[in-house]
Simulated assay, not measured.
Amino acid sequence: MNLLRNAIKSHRPIRVDHRNLRFSLFLRDSPRPFSTEPQQPSQDTPKDPFLRTPSTGLVYGKLFGITKHTTKSDIVSLLEGCNVNLDDMKVDYNRTYMPTGMMIQFPSRYAYDAAIRAINRKGRLYKLERADRSQWDFITPYGGKSVLLQGIPRNALLDDVERFLSGCLYDSSTMQILVKPAFPDPIRMALVHFPSQTQAMHAFITKNRSFCLNNQISVRVLQ
């Protein structure tokens, strides 16, 4: 009899409390509680504002490592495929007209990133860093139309410099005589503006290492 009773008990259906079941389903399916607390930013959100810059729009960088012999065409070749041209570049000169770097205007962040990759791949002598638009606006664009004459004698007059430039087409009204501190004597320079790049290059080709009075003059085209 005991065995029969145990067998009967084991075959009783299991009763489920439907009230508890409905409550559990409600908790599982109910939306998250409303909160007035602001959501915490994702840990993956970049903190650098530049990294959040849209892929479109101008981006500026400054290229370090250039010398007085570096031309814009050299950098255009270096950054081939980055969608920059000669008008997108300005050389930053110090007070003695030695280049401290080259500002470059990129059409997008993608172009800037491509330039970083190009420099890492084939131009390790250069370094590109992010720059502000204000730095671009501050730099005077010479555009290959200005020439710097270095080594002018201390006793040379403006007429002597003009005779040195005989045969060149330039704007004499904008010529500036400058002095570069040096030891043992300061170096006199002249900044001369030309109407075109062709005329400035002609002056470089025909006058570089020529003499003004007894001094040999170095001629350099400013980029």
Score class of each variant (00 low, 15 high):
R117W: 07
V221M: 08
T140M: 08
Y97V: 15
P33L: 14
K9G: 03
L125D: 11
N94S: 10
G61W: 00
I152M: 10
S77E: 10
V192D: 07
Q199W: 06
D29N: 14
T53R: 06
Q39S: 15
R163F: 02
E80Q: 14
L4H: 06
L27N: 11
V179Y: 04
V76L: 14
F106V: 03
I119S: 06
S73A: 14
R109M: 09
T36L: 09
V161W: 12
F23W: 07
T45E: 05
S166G: 12
G144L: 03
K72Q: 13
D160I: 02
T53S: 10
N20D: 07
A200P: 10
R188L: 09
C212P: 00
Q150I: 06
V76W: 05
S77H: 11
C82P: 08
A118Q: 11
T96Y: 09
D29Q: 09
D185R: 01
V221R: 13
M103G: 14
Q39Y: 10
D160R: 01
C82G: 07
F138C: 12
R133V: 13
I152F: 07
R220F: 02
R5W: 03
T174S: 11
L58F: 13
V76P: 04
T56L: 09
S77T: 04
R22S: 11
P33E: 12
G81W: 03
Q150A: 07
A7F: 07
T140G: 00
N85W: 03
F50R: 02
L63P: 00
E80H: 11
A203I: 05
F194Q: 14
L21W: 00
Q216F: 02
M201C: 03
L178E: 06
L58E: 15
S77M: 08
F26Y: 03
Q223H: 02
G143H: 13
M201S: 15
V59E: 12
S218M: 13
L222Y: 12
R15A: 15
D113Q: 09
N2L: 14
D137A: 14
D92P: 02
S108H: 10
P99A: 06
G57K: 04
S35I: 13
M102H: 07
L25P: 04
P99H: 09
N6P: 00
D171Q: 08
S73L: 05
E80R: 08
A7D: 05
I152V: 15
P99E: 01
L3E: 05
S196N: 00
P184C: 02
T96P: 01
R154D: 13
L63N: 08
I104L: 10
Q135L: 13
F23S: 08
K145F: 01
C82H: 10
L148I: 14
D132F: 11
T206L: 03
R15G: 02
H69I: 07
N6S: 03
